[in-house]
Amino acid sequence: MDITSRKTVSMGLSVAAAVSLYGISFGALSVASGLDVWQTQFLSIVMFSGGSQFAVIGLIASGAAGGSAITSAALLGVRNTLYAVTMAPTIGPGLWKRLLAGQLTIDESTAVSLSQSELQHKRLGFWVTGIGVFIGWNAMTFLGAVLGDAVGDVRAFGLDAAAAAAFLALLWPRLTAKDPIVIAVVAAVVTVIAIPAVPAGVPVLVAAAVGLVTGFMLNRGAK
């Protein structure tokens, strides 16, 4: 194995280790939100996309209707479609390979892959990170769910605040320019106004709609 390959593997595995650790908090928060261990594990295996998973459990915990939890998860999942389109040439043809790659197409596997310059390293980065995160995330989800079940009151351990911090940490790397910052602030303000005014689960959808309009206006203003 050449030195770049080794570096790629090492990068993928460190990303996987960091993300996996955080799976413990997902598992614990999920059972605290009212899901059982199996529903929690189902999300980590089938949905396998951190932002969408946290959205589902957060909205279920807040008493939102199922429809808004599903819509929010799907809207957050739209970026994975773009990642998949970007990764398709790297993955190459083959139905089963593409199906497997599809499930492993998330922020982390795409980011590690895109950070490489040659095709073989892009491929290696994608698979090592994707498989590493999948195994680690699911193992830690299970651990967290079982521990969370045993712990009981998660508020005493600040796990509700941990969920808010997790969303902030997912948002942070995207706030690199004026436009995303403006959109984030508008979405936050709209959410605060909407919370007491509309049923649980709806504020996030209102924020998404207003965010899109804001993005459209910023884009027009730039032209």
């Binding site: 932002g51 946290f54 959205a55 957060g58 807040s62 008493g63 929010s72 809207l75 957050l76 739209v78 970026r79 479609t81 773009l82 509700d160 605040a161 969920a163 808010a164 969303f167 902030l168 997912l170 948002l171 995207r174 706030l175 995303p180 959109i183 984030a184 602030v185 508008v186 979405a187 936050a188 709209v190 959410t191 605060v192 919370i195 007491p196 649980a200 504020p203 996030v204 924020a207 998404a208 207003v210 965010g211 899109l212 804001t214 993005g215 884009n219």
Partner: peptide
């Protein structure tokens, strides 16, 4: 652009909900 705008707006909204929302 639509994909990144949606992601930022949703994540920001979820930060706020998890931080201040409390039984309605």
């Amino acid at each position: 652009r639509m994909s990144s705008v949606l992601t930022v707006a949703l994540l920001s909204s979820l930060v706020v909900i998890q931080t201040v929302a409390s039984s309605g």
